[in-house]
Design a protein around this nucleic acid. Structure first.
Lengths: 219, 219
DNA sequence: ATTATAGGCTAATTTCGATTAGCCGTCAAG
DNA sequence: CTTGACGGCTAATCGAAATTAGCCTATAAT
């Protein structure tokens, strides 16, 4: 990774830990292994570093959104998959979502930085909301909607059903961001949450028992 | 309110809007209607103002926790109340909780300030978690637990049930803190959430219909 | 009436961190 | 082989805020 990129990387780490105002350009430089004035060979000033991070974030989010939307668009044809989803698969889905958000280094640092900086700038607040609230909700709403159509889940209000699925995940995530030592506890609750969600919303009795799904329905 | 207290009040407002580092002592002074150097007649320095706010927060939280625990302690005797709770009452309960958190001025400003400052100091992160996650969860777990004992709700895992009740409220709250213009939308979802929660967890059919409760049970 | 104290002000002073100036070595293109 | 641009360094400089000095008035207690 070249210096210019390393500056962004180290800056993001520091901003996510202490917030923009509490990070000195000298701190960033030190992490990169150069002196503060050398930073200015790469970026006009401190603000430009921050802006570059946001720009990169937007770029990555667009890419990712592209991927998700491809899934979303194809999802109607994936209906068969969701028809046969088991509880264990649902848990795996939730786990993956959770662990991706929690452990993907880029994602995690962005999220923490936005959490700190969102009140400086309305645009950042909106970005936070979109990335960690609205987009996950609408993506999952598509999936759950498919499971409803497939007869796997009850025909409750899907928007609220999605809230019931995702809000606990979001909450556990905010716990882990702030108190990482609670991750183990959070994972246990995550699994219990999904199992209970499944018990509440699953349409057929047999779906409650793992793996024995799709005997009655299908084709 | 005397000057010393007004300083805390205005400082809290500013810190909650922009974060500690982005507020100048001159800003605080101006809001109070004095000049910056005069602040130093009341507090040793800027940090001391912040510390005093935290101290006051802790004091208020202790008081409040006291109240809640009294409720909690008495709650076993309030079981009769929860035995007869209707869906509308449950909604009122959720609404009140939500609107208290959202509109109580002190609470709201503290929460926003903690949201911004929590990563500076582990203690603040812990305070945030306790106040807005752990305490509400354990309080509500008591209430829901009573409703389970009273036969109003299903005998699912109460801890998870509480997560299902509170996590959506928490999530809607974080939305409103960041994008206040979404409050109306949030209130609508809040109500839909509670109705659906009730449909999912209520034990008897009649409780699903508003107001017609407590025909079969009671005395 | 006298004086001590609380609390306010203006005018420095201090501090600290961002930024600029200007120098230097390296290395690739001509 | 020489030149220019790239990226690094040290030593200023700048600027913004926090903080201090020192003065003034009102008021309340002696």
């Amino acid at each position: 990774m070249d210096t210019k990129q390393r500056i962004l990387d180290e800056a993001l780490t520091l901003f996510s830990e202490k917030g923009y105002a509490n990070v000195f350009v000298a701190d960033i430089a030190e992490k990169v292994g150069i002196k503060a004035p050398s930073l200015y060979k790469h970026y006009k000033n401190k603000q430009a570093i921050f802006d570059a991070i946001i720009e990169e974030m937007n770029r990555r989010f667009l890419e990712e959104a592209g991927n998700l939307q491809i899934n979303g668009a194809d999802a109607t044809e994936d209906a068969e998959i969701y028809k046969h989803i088991s509880e264990e698969q649902l848990i795996t889905l939730g786990n993956n979502l959770f662990l991706y958000f929690l452990h993907d280094d880029y994602t995690r640092r962005f999220r923490k930085m936005l959490t700190i900086e969102q009140f400086h700038d309305k645009k950042l607040a909106t970005a936070y909301m979109k990335q960690y609230v609205d987009d996950p909700l609408s993506y999952q709403e598509i999936l759950l909607g498919l499971m409803v159509s497939a007869g796997v889940l009850q025909t409750e209000n899907v928007e609220i059903m999605t809230l019931h699925f995702y809000a606990p995940i979001y909450m556990l995530l905010t716990i882990c961001d702030r108190e990482p030592e609670r991750e183990k506890e959070a994972l246990i609750k995550l699994e219990a949450h999904i199992r209970q969600f499944n018990r509440l919303y699953a349409r057929n009795e047999e779906i409650i028992q793992d793996n024995k799904i799709s005997r009655r329905k299908k084709k």
